[in-house]
Design a protein around this nucleic acid. Sequence first.
RNA 1: GGCGCGGUGGCAGAGUGGUCAUGCAGCGGACUGCAACUCCGUUAACGCCGGUUCGAUUCCGACCCGCGCCUCCA
Length: 480
Amino acid sequence: MLKIYNTLHRKKQEFRPIEPGKIQLYVCGITVYDYCHIGHARVLVAFDAITRYLRSQNWDVNYVRNITDIDDKILQRATDNNENYTDLTARMIEAMHEDERALDILPPNHEPRATGHIGDILDMIETLVDNHYAYTASNGDIYYRVKRFPEYGKLSNKNPDELLSGARVDSDDAKEDPRDFALWKAATADQVGWESPWGRGRPGWHIECSAMSTCLLGDTFDIHGGGPDLLFPHHENEIAQSEAATGKTFSHYWMHAGAVRVDNEKMSKSLNNFFTIREVLEKYHPEVVRYFLLSSHYRSPINYSEDNLIEARQGLERFYFALQNFAEVPACALSEMTLGGSGDDDDNKEASYYQRFVEAMDDDFNTREAFSVMYDMVRELNTLVRDDNAQTQVRTQTLAAELKALGEILGILKANPAEFLQGSADTEAISSAEIDALVAERNQAKQDKQYQRSDEIRQQLAEQGVVLEDSREGTRWRRE
RNA sequence: GGCGCGGUGGCAGAGUGGUCAUGCAGCGGACUGCAACUCCGUUAACGCCGGUUCGAUUCCGACCCGCGCCUCCA
């Protein structure tokens, strides 16, 4: 039974789909005015693992993740760069897609753009105006009338009256009420804008998500997700807009990822202490980044630091150490996964590794718990490999296949083990060819019982961060 | 001030009313020409104070500390 923590009710709830077997999922995507950072990566990776898992359990997931490609920050940045805003967004969208491919993030089913849905946005605003949930202000902007939506604050658990007295809301003279927010902003002829019944203008920040989600998923859908800082006001405003416009419940479940911190400090645009995905990937293998992001629960705060990334790499290496004993790991269908931890096939009382994995993931996507099941598999696998014999060969192969199949659900263990452990040569001081040559020389020395020379070479390579491992099959090496 | 989250062994990080998380690191042993990998064993934790209970890290209450949101940010 799948359980999901629902921000709306602040508790874990059994998941009940609107339509059996189907999940309509909307996740707030990126406002494309800059490169994606590690906080974006967390949301992307979390929902990537979640959708992969749900699909593995035969849910028909319709995953929509939008791109906000018109917004004040975009216009500001384009002005600063002295370029057309569409050139800026096109470049950033391309960069975002590169980052996603690098992290092995599967594309969503739909990736709507705000500028592609201006008509839907205007339709929704018109409905809101007609129903007095919105009004035209003296400055030509159209604002949402928060006072008319009594449930305002239900997602972020805020009292509307207290929001009114909250001094930090800037009181704009044009607004009836300081809590009101813009649905449409008037634009002059020389500014970016679209024609509308209320004159030329552009959409406000929150309306595009209401319009696009309704357009693609219907008035009511199953799950709405996003980053932690979108909870208020963005998601609260989405609810206000959509539920006022349709008169129906907007989303049944709300999921929010935890914040990413950097060296134990809040990461934010204003503190300018954020790392872009491309910066991070220059230093760490994409799977290390994925593993790091999935090694704590998706709702917990997570701390981006050198130490934690190194630890993540070491954790991932344990999987690859086990897998490198196989020339090729066969594929394994999830329906065929039956192996349990006892090592005894007749023992049906013990839950299989796969059952335990599913149980962990069904519990609000507990990826860390899922990893611990996989580590149990690693231990058994290593033991089987060490005590290699004819009786256990089938189980060994099957276990390796199952491990890899589970890794695939989380988007890891897809690399070639040797390549993963050897690292990428172009960023390293010593080339693979040089290493191979030294290894060959050392093996000759070993054969000649010239152990002093052999140790010299080991030492020399160790200083360059290369570790040698002798085995029956020969010497293999990896970069630390 | 309002709302919310959390404090677990050296670090990271799950979980549970009563023998095990897990990973990294440490220690002892096996393996190895030496190592690495691996395996076996092992050390070590549940912020503080009360309460409920036969028994609480786990439930309840108070307290202390940290963090987030309330303003653009995933």
